[in-house]
Structures are given as C-alpha cells and as structure tokens.
C-alpha cells in the first residue's frame, strides 16, 4: 500500500486535506504527521500551510522539520498547498521580510492596493473565493481538469517565480499571478484543492497517481 504523508507542523487544520485525499485515493494510506521518519519514508508528501510565513518557518524549525521538507522536495512527489508554495521560494515580503526554504527561486509579494484596470474598481484583499486557473503548460496534475477551471483561493500574498518556466498555472486578479508552479517532482498551488469541489478532488487524485 503506498502512502502519502501530510506534514503537520501546527500551521492550520489538515483534516480536510486528509479527508479529501482519502476520498479520492481509498487505497492509499494517508498519514498526518510531524514525525521525520514517517515523512522521509512516505511515497508522497503534502506540504500544506495557513497563517503567516514567519510562524510557518518558525514552526518548521521548532518541529525540526526544515531539512526534512527540503529533502522530500528534492526526491519524491511533493505537493505544496497555499502557504506551502510560498515557503518553498527564496524570500517573502510578509512580516517585514522572511527568508524561506529556497527550494525554488522566487519571492512572495503582497497584493497591496489593487484596482481592476478595466473598471477602476478596487479589488479586495485577501483575494478570497473561486477564481480561474489558466493552465500554461500540460502537466500530469492537470489531467482531466478543464482549462480555466475555478479553484478556491484565500491569500494576501502571491508567488513571484524568478523563472517563468516554473509557472504552470496563472490566475488573474488585477494582473496575472502564478497560481501553480512546478519543477521535476514538485507541484505547488496557491489555492486549496481540498476545498475546490470536483476540480480540486481531481487534482488530488492526480497527485496520488503521479510518478514523476
């Protein structure tokens, strides 16, 4: 039986992620864990996160998981969710500036004061609700998901990849930002597939089957 470890480092509720994976992959063992060995031995790893990036980096260090996350991100199917992909980049503007894991090159930037350039209307931050993800390139995790499908987002900071080739999905909120980035065995999304109904469940099912 293959296994998926969801890294539990105290940043947000992981129950929904686990339940959604159990629903789409009944033959996979899903474990929510902060145990280093569990994470390193799992076939696949999910790196979720909610809250602020400073707390995220601090909690990873507190649970002695920083190097484990880096290692898993280098050698096995690895799915980052919401704050997860932000933590994978080099640096975040949040909390006055925080150094992140630097697994992928890029920065995390605040949305700030946004206006819709078409209408001049103010755009609310956090960017909250269902927005479209435009698939920039084909990827096994997009399989069976219609182009421009909607996913559920809630965030105030966005991913700014240093390498445009890493961006596999983008979303428009006053401008186009990277909503999905990928490289080799890593796939990381700004939205919440576990809260994105059918499209989200399909993405999680694809991850459970993914052999990069």
């Amino acid at each position: 039986m293959s296994s998926i470890a969801i890294i539990d480092y105290g940043m947000g509720n992981l129950r929904s992620v686990a339940k959604a994976l159990e629903q789409v992959a009944p033959n996979v063992r899903v474990i929510v864990t902060q145990n280093r060995a569990d994470i390193l031995h799992a076939d696949r790893v999910v790196f979720p996160g909610q809250g602020s990036i400073r707390d995220c980096m601090r909690e990873l260090a507190h649970w002695n998981l920083t190097d484990v996350v880096r290692e898993a991100a280098l050698n096995k199917p690895f799915l980052g969710l919401c704050l997860g992909p932000q933590a994978l980049l080099t640096f975040s503007e949040e909390n006055g500036g925080v150094d992140c894991l630097n697994v992928l090159p890029g920065r995390v930037v605040w949305f700030g004061e946004l206006r819709d350039p078409r209408t001049g209307e103010r755009l609310k931050v956090p960017h909250m609700g269902w927005n479209q993800v435009h698939q920039k390139s084909s990827h096994p995790l997009w399989q069976g998901i219609a182009q421009d499908s909607r996913f559920y987002f809630v965030h105030s900071y966005y991913l700014q990849s240093a390498e445009p080739s890493l961006v596999v999905g983008h979303t428009w909120y006053g401008f186009d930002f990277a909503s999905a980035i990928a490289r080799d065995n890593i796939f990381a999304v700004q939205f919440h597939p576990e809260k994105s109904a059918q499209a989200g469940l399909r993405l999680l099912a694809n991850f459970a089957d993914w052999s990069p």
Partner: peptide
C-alpha cells in the same frame, strides 16, 4: 475572467 462573486 476573474474572481467569481459567491453565493452562500
């Protein structure tokens, strides 16, 4: 294209 208004 953009953020949808929600019904709850």
């Amino acid at each position: 294209m953009g953020l949808a208004k929600r019904i709850i």
